[in-house]
Amino acid sequence: MANNKQIYDKGKVVAGLVIFVFIVLSPFLYNLGKAAPAPELKLTDKAKAAKECVLPKEEMKAGHMQLLDLWREKVVREASRVYVNTEGKEFAMSLSNTCLDCHSNKADFCDRCHNYASVSPYCWDCHIDNPKEISDAK
């Protein structure tokens, strides 16, 4: 029977295979003709002037969320408010007053990467983007 090879139920099999191939190719098709460059961050003048963040840039890039979580734990549960980094420099453990003081440009700094990586942090459920705007308004 080697000579009469045929695909049985051809319609259904081919339809299934077309769906399979379409699913496999979907990430390629979705991005067809699109260039998706990595987001470029804008630093505020204050952040540029400070040059260094609390930790080295690479560590902040990958681990800032864990640092913030740790800060919250320390402040809220242990009432310890001072963070000493590896170089011995002291910082107040505060998202609003320390982090957002330099990085006051949420849209051009925080949001760019978060949107790109599809991360929606709940920080801003409570913390306002830039506390200074509020204090100015008072």
Binding site: N31, K34, A38, K61, A62, G63, Q66, Y116, V119
Partner: peptide
Amino acid sequence: TKVDIVGIKEFTMGLVTFHPKIPEG
């Protein structure tokens, strides 16, 4: 261990747009 997620997305996007580029760090 933590990784630079933006660097990784840049890399994976490179793969699916056929402009593969190895991320740094």
